[in-house]
């Protein structure tokens, strides 16, 4: 329920209480009864995911075989601006934990659509939403219908967006959500000004490419070049390279983007990786703005390696991750 509607309801029930000489508890009871009903009827525009809850409730059991679970968790990190800072605070499993393999199920399809949307890869977010909607045995998948509306609005395909809005409106619970998109139809200015749709539209590369044929990394680079202010894309790109221990490719990212709008400063995991790159190019870490503290910590990590001393205090670093990968 929208805040203003809720306040109206409170005002009404308080007035009703005063008139009927009820105690305030009546108001509370009435609200508790009525709110869920009204929320269902009006189609509360609720976010599909509570990213903070996903992070808080995530149980890192040290096993990483569940790529779908890990993909959702890493997505939550990205959507809360923590991916490149905190990704190695948790057990990781290579880039499959960022992009779970497409298992042709509704669950993976939803995750992947969310993921590509988060990356700013509008075409592939739409593709996965479409595939998932087809696979769903319900008349349509409301979440993916919303994604289809969003991606078609962003790409300017207003006629088909209008169709999807009309379809979503047939679901009582989503009627209000659907109606909230009507204002964007044929309205480029509204889309560009929207805090969610606008940045996504600015991610669509001017020059067409064949999605994912060159690899997601090349697609992400095109998205970054197109919209350098969309930081999710570079966080995913760098983290994917780090998770796959592709240090040369990671260095290529820093070489191209460090100091630009896309990467004005290095997030934690990137800075840690830059320390390692300094093995081949002393002083590299300074040139990419890594702090002395981080570099000192890296030196300490190196000193302890192979000594048998406990390394637990480094468990949240890229260095520890790569050591573990190399030992497997």
């Amino acid at each position: 329920m929208e805040k203003k509607n809720y306040l109206c309801l409170v005002q009404f029930t308080l007035r009703y209480d005063r008139r009927m000489k009820h105690k305030p508890v009546t108001t509370v009871a009435l609200l508790l009864l009525v709110i869920p009903f009204l929320s269902g009827c009006t189609g509360q525009t609720a976010p599909f995911h509570n990213w903070d809850n996903i992070i808080v409730s995530y149980v890192d059991d040290g096993h990483t075989a569940d790529y779908e679970k890990l993909t959702l968790f890493n997505l939550a990190l990205a959507e809360t601006g923590q991916l490149a800072d905190n990704v190695f605070h948790y057990t990781q499993a290579g880039s499959d934990g960022i992009i779970a393999p497409w298992a042709q199920t509704v669950e993976t399809g939803e995750r992947l659509s969310d993921l590509y949307w988060s990356m700013g890869h509008v075409a592939y977010a739409q593709r996965m939403a479409f595939e998932t909607n087809v696979l769903d045995d319900r008349p349509f998948n409301p979440e993916m219908m919303v994604r289809l509306i969003e991606t078609n609005l962003v790409s300017g395909a207003y006629d088909v967006a209008r169709k999807y809005i009309a379809i979503l409106e047939t679901d009582k619970q989503y009627r209000k959500t659907a109606a909230s998109y009507l204002k964007y139809l044929d309205n480029d200015a509204a889309i560009e000004a929207d805090p969610i749709l606008g940045p996504k539209r600015r991610c669509i590369p001017e020059n067409d490419f064949i999605s994912l044929v060159r690899g997601i990394d090349e697609d992400l680079k095109d998205i970054i070049r197109t919209n350098p202010s969309y930081h999710n894309a570079i966080e995913y790109l760098g983290v994917i390279y780090l998770l796959d221990c592709e240090m040369d490719k990671f260095k290529g990212v820093l070489d191209e983007f460090y100091g630009t709008e896309a990467l004005p400063t290095l997030p934690v995991s990137f800075a840690e990786a830059a320390c390692m790159l300094s093995e081949m190019d002393s002083g590299y870490w300074k040139r990419v703005g890594v702090s002395q503290n981080t570099f000192n910590r890296y030196r300490e990590f190196k000193k302890r390696m192979g000594t048998g001393l406990p390394m637990d205090r480094f468990k949240d670093t890229f260095w520890y991750y790569i050591m573990r990968v190399n030992s497997q």
Binding site: A123, P205, D208
Partner: peptide, 12 residues
Amino acid sequence: QFFHSTDPNRIE
């Protein structure tokens, strides 16, 4: 078949 990134034709 493949999927375009930008082309309104969507699919090839």
